[in-house]
Nucleic acid binder design. Structure first.
Length: 428
RNA sequence: GUGGCCGUAGCUCAGUUGGUUAGAGCGCCAGGUUGUGGCCCUGGAGGUCGGGGGUUCAAGUCCCCUCGGUCACCCCA
């Protein structure tokens, strides 16, 4: 045997039946987004690296040291997408669909970091972007959509925090005020932020250390520095959420990692996960990003949710996983396989999930596989059935005890009979 | 990038102060039941003990190096 390869660090394979939860999560999200008028958008997984750098900010950790960058044979500087929004915005700029353009996506995202629980070099995000409207009701719609999604997948326990980061009118002044306050209070901050504070002053507010927490109690608050326009916008968003009875708390310290955010930001976290990695989704408004990527000035808002984190939270919160089953019928054929080939095909054409054994296995072995497949029904064809043009239909579960129900049917009515039986079972 | 912990069968793990052919449970395959799954019983396949070097009469066990995994810091989904 030659060397057995493994998936690269920070990446992972998801096999059935674990992947069944993925299918369910994506289907739930697709349905919700679709009902709200969001259409699927599929983007390239890599872009001109500047698409990401301009959006998330050259100074951010993600852009400065966590991107997977490479040069292709045409000497283009490319990068694997570290998040979803920038690519969707680039697509808007390129194609100019009628605004507001509402799109949803599911995509891998790549960041070169040291992997640990709940953090991967390739993780997956689902999300929506709504581009071309600054209406606060759109913020409300997007946040309510995110909230409803968690409810639908069985996570009633997530916490929603919202805040406003201001805009070009009021944020620069706030940053100046904060910066000078930090200058004066440098000694009270935790070790790391003593140094880092000047590079990105807003991040200090988001620090989890006790020193920074208590020190910044008296720091200037963005909520008091908002210009009238931003304050009004934020108020309207809160009113909208109140009206829809979406539970949230205002957090003036909420600071998101990417530079493109303006006005509304929000984050969802699970109290069942460790604090360091408890963020299960987040988003906000990014009114300047479209223009930064070469489009017309277009306000926009969106959010992204990490699928792996979401599933961790589901597990931690104990939301029940439904038993994963692929097929309803298993065809057992001990006379050569011709019947297995035919009946699996016919059943599938009739819309019934069907599987079979290969490699000419014994009856016992095939029955074992039938049981393990999770199928409700085994269709059995042996020499006697074959000669008589019939097939045995055996109930594999639910029947109760040893009194297993089995019947012999003419092959002409096989598919119909199986269909009726499955109908009865699902009704029960 | 920095640090802690851990590498024995597909999985979860035993393996006594170094001492014969390295074990268990689960899973897988087959048989018990020459036409019937689950439960039970029996048997089987599957391991260069992560890799390399060293100490020793003898290394899964001790030492060094290396690779890999995992958790945490940082940051984020």
């Amino acid at each position: 045997m030659s060397e057995a390869f493994r998936a690269p660090p920070g990446t992972h394979d998801v096999l059935f039946p674990d992947s069944a939860r993925w299918e369910a999560v994506i289907a739930t999200f697709a349905s919700l987004a679709h009902r709200a008028g969001y259409g699927l958008v599929v983007n390239p997984i890599f872009e001109d690296e500047r698409v990401f750098v301009r959006g998330i900010g050259a100074g951010s950790d993600v852009a400065s040291k966590e991107m997977y960058r490479f040069e292709d044979r045409g000497a283009r500087r490319l990068a694997l997408r570290p998040e979803g929004t920038a690519s969707v915005v680039r697509a808007f700029v390129q194609h100019r669909p009628p605004a507001p353009w509402k799109a949803w996506y599911v995509t891998p995202a790549f960041r070169y970091e040291r992997p640990q629980a709940g953090r991967y070099r390739q993780h997956h995000q689902i999300g929506v972007e709504a581009i071309g409207s600054g209406d606060p009701d759109l913020d409300t719609e997007v946040i309510a959509l995110a909230w409803q999604f968690y409810v639908d997948v069985g996570l009633g326990g997530v916490n929603l925090r919202i805040g406003s980061m201001g805009d070009a009118t009021c944020r620069p002044a706030f940053e100046r005020a904060l910066r000078s306050w930090l200058d004066a209070n440098m000694s009270k901050l935790c070790n790391e932020h003593g140094v880092k504070a000047m590079a990105n002053p807003l991040r200090v507010l988001d620090c989890k250390s006790e020193e920074c927490r208590s020190a910044t109690e008296s720091a200037p608050s963005i909520s008091e520095a908002l210009c009238p326009g931003c304050a009004e916008h934020f108020k309207r968003v809160r009113e909208g959420l109140d009206a829809l009875e979406v539970p949230y708390v205002c957090d003036p310290r909420l600071v998101r990692g990417f530079d493109y955010y303006t006005r509304t930001t929000f984050e969802l976290s699970s109290p069942y996960l460790d604090a360091a990695q408890n963020g299960v989704g987040g988003g906000g408004r990014y009114d300047g990003l479209v223009e930064a990527l070469g489009g017309p000035p277009s306000p926009a808002v969106g959010f992204g949710i990490g699928i792996e984190r979401l599933l961790l939270a589901c597990e931690a919160e104990g939301s029940p996983a439904r038993a994963a089953r692929l097929v309803d019928v298993f065809v057992v054929d001990v006379v050569g396989g011709e019947s297995a080939r035919r009946w699996t095909h016919e059943l599938r054409l009739a819309g019934i999930g069907a599987d079979r054994a290969f490699d000419g296995r014994s009856l016992k072995a095939q029955m074992r596989l039938a049981d393990r497949s999770g199928a409700e029904i085994a269709v059995i064809v042996g020499p006697e059935e074959k000669a008589a043009g019939k097939a045995a239909i055996r109930r594999l579960r639910g029947g109760g005890g040893d009194a297993t129900i089995q019947e012999l049917v003419d092959t002409a009515t096989l598919v119909e009979r199986v269909s009726v039986l499955l109908g009865d079972i699902s009704v029960r």
